[in-house]
Amino acid sequence: MIKRIKRCFRIWLILGKMSLSLHLMRRFGFVVFFLGKMFRFFFFVLFLFFIFKRTGGVASYSASQAIFFFVVFHFISSLSQMFFRGIYTFRQQVVSGGFDLILSKPLSALFRVVFGSFDFIDLVTLPFFVFALYSSGSLLSPSLLDITFFLALLINSLVLSFSFSVLVVSLSLITLEVDHIVMIYRDLETMARFPVDIYGKGIGTILTYVIPLGIMITFPAKAFMGILDIKFVVLSFVFGLSSLFLSLKFWRFALKKYASASS
């Protein structure tokens, strides 16, 4: 087991090195993307700041809380895009048949596909988000327990995000309309810039349990602020683990389906 993990990690490093050299080849694009992402982030924070300053808070959240929600959103979405970048290029690999060659290699295809390309743009933006997380979080004066829950839920969010990637990748084996599913998800994801309860009970519930954005983003942030009931913490982990289990099962199903489909 340990040996297998070590081997996967080594391959992951090599793949990472390869995508780094790709990034370095497109330095101009790299810089532009980085600037664009930073610009979007700071402009949004600026807007939020002025909106909340004037209105004195939205749906019982203060300006600093709202900004923290926003920063957590960016942090988690950036982390998952950094690690699970592969889902954006996977469909192309299926269409071109490159996936067949991946499948015929002695390495877990799922591992290769989901973790296969590491996004260094997100890695470069990460320190800024960590700093933003620190500076907006310190205003909220969390307890040590709050921080522990926050970190644990953060890992849970990555598990959820991984499960989502597995779902998308599996779907790409069955249908070719996956690009749209990913893009629609990304649009929906932006709803979690704000705590999902501001959308009212109905939509809030859907966003929490169906598209689990609430569990992925709002819950960790709330735990940090010490306003998340412990039963929701437990629920989050149950949700995270079961979606991991189900998504892996779905991947196996999709692979079998792919294997019996026409070439």
Partner: peptide, 30 residues
């Protein structure tokens, strides 16, 4: 159609945001 669908979602995000900003108060802001 999917592109239009995405547009609607994007608008709904903003709509619900402002809706909740203004649900607490009746006076004009900005």
């Amino acid at each position: 159609i999917l592109w239009r669908f995405r547009n609607v979602i994007q608008i709904l995000v903003v709509f619900f945001f402002w809706n909740s900003v203004f649900s607490g108060q009746n006076e004009a802001v900005f």
